[in-house]
Amino acid sequence: MPARRTPFGAAGGGPRKGAALRRAWAGPLAAAAIIAAVPAQAAAAPDPAHGKQIYDRCLACHAVAHDRVGPRHCGLKGRQAGSMPGFEYSDAMRATGFTWNRQTLDRFLTDPLGVVPGTTMTYDGIKDARERRDLVAYLLSLPPCGGR
């Protein structure tokens, strides 16, 4: 189960406090700590199933298989930013030169308007690194777009 986060904890002291706690455990009880910390660890493998839950936040504007306010997300892996035929992108998105992969998605989703000023994806972004990592894993797992 994902750790519960508050709007304050995610941006403020919460994660750091967690890190300090983990450091404190790192000495004599290292072995026990590793076992205990595994489920909540940010360093664990990305969890696309959790990413799918985070993707609920995108569902006002996106769908996997068809364009809505935002473009469809099928076949995102390796796609050029702003290249889905028939979708009206901003000039800003077309001009990024991004190819969507783990790094570019992570950057964009951290702060869409900061990274692509002028984008019409007017969304503040996913600030929590673990949520973003899992979301990106989910996005990269989406199947290619079917015929249409």
Binding site: D56, R57, T122
Partner: peptide, 17 residues
């Protein structure tokens, strides 16, 4: 319900901008 939930997230992501 899914659309409304998404709308809440979308507005939440718009307010600080």
């Amino acid at each position: 319900a899914g659309l409304e939930k998404g709308a809440v997230s979308a507005y939440l992501g718009a307010v600080p901008l």
